[in-house]
Amino acid sequence: MSTQHTQSSNAQHGPFIRFLATLDRRWIFLAMMLAVGTPILLQLRPAETAGPLSTATFDVIEALPAGSRVLFAFDYDPASEGELQPMANAFVHHCASKGHKLAFLALWPLGAQKANETAETILKPFHPEYQAGVDYCMLGYKAGNEGVIKVIVTDLLQVYQADVNGTPLSEIPMLKGVTNIQAFDLIINISAGYPGSKEWAQYGTSAYPDAFILLVGTTGVQSNQLYPYYPAQMKGMLVAIKGAAEYEVLVNGKYGETAAILAAQAAMSATSGGAMKETGVPAVLQEGQRRMGPQLVAHLLMVTLIVLGNIVYFATRTKGAAR
C-alpha cells in the first residue's frame, strides 16, 4: 500500500469516518463500562415476561409431587455466577417452596462453594423448616468430570460414601434406600461448561431416558450447543440471564411472598427493633431481573457499534472502489 494511495484515500473521507476508523479501542471499552454501569446505578429494570422455554422449566418442577427427590449439580464457578447464581437461587427457592428434598453435588471444584452459598442465602432465611442433613444435604465436589456421572448413575455409594460433614449417606433420611441417582425424580444442572449439561444429557438422560428428568440452567456461551437436547434429553432449559429473569418472574409470581418469606422479613424487622427492612419479594430472588437493565443498554451499544463499524467499512470500500 503506497503512501500516496493512503493520503488520497484519506482525503476523501469526512472527519466522522476518519474519527471512527482510527478510534482507540479504549473509547469502546469506556462506552461499554458506561453502558453497563449507568443502568446499574440508576437501577433501571425493564419488565419481563416468561418465554416458552422458561415456562416449560417452571412447569416441570410444578408438576412434581411435593417431597420429590431433587439432585442439584452445581457445575459452575464464580466466573459465571453473574449469569447462573440467579438461576440457582430461583431453582432452589422453587423446589423448597414445593417441599422437595434436595441434594447438592458439584463436578466443578468451586461449585460446592456455590451450593453452600445458595443454601445460606435461600434455604436458611426463606425455608427455615429445611434442616441440613435431613431435608437437604451437601454431597460436595468430586474429581473425575463425566466419570463421576457415569459411576453415580448406577452406583452412588462408589463415589459418595458420605456427605461433606462426613455423615454416611445411609444415615441421611432423604437418601434412605438410595443406591444410585436414578432414585431421584429430577436432576437440575446449573452449568458453565465442561463438565456440565452436555455430560448430564449424555451419561444421564441419553443412557437412562426414563430414570429421571433433567432440567438445566446454562450460560449464554454454551446454550447454543444444548438446544438440540431439548426437549428429548432436557425437559427444560434456562438460557443466560434472560432465562433466569423469566424464570424468576414465574417463581416469584407464585412463591415470591410466601408466608415463610414474610415471616422471615418480619423476624428480621423484630430483631432489628426497627421498621421492616425488606418487604415483598426478596431482592436476592430478583437478581436476574435487575441485570436485564444493563443488558438492554449494553445490547443497544453492541448493535450501534456493529452498525458504526459497517458504516466505516462501506464508506472506505465504496470510495476505494470508485477510484
Partner: peptide, 18 residues
Amino acid sequence: TATMFAMLAFYVASAAFR
C-alpha cells in the same frame, strides 16, 4: 476469576466494532 471473565465483555465489543 469473575473479573477475568467479565473483561471479555469489552473485547467482544471491540471485536464487533472492528
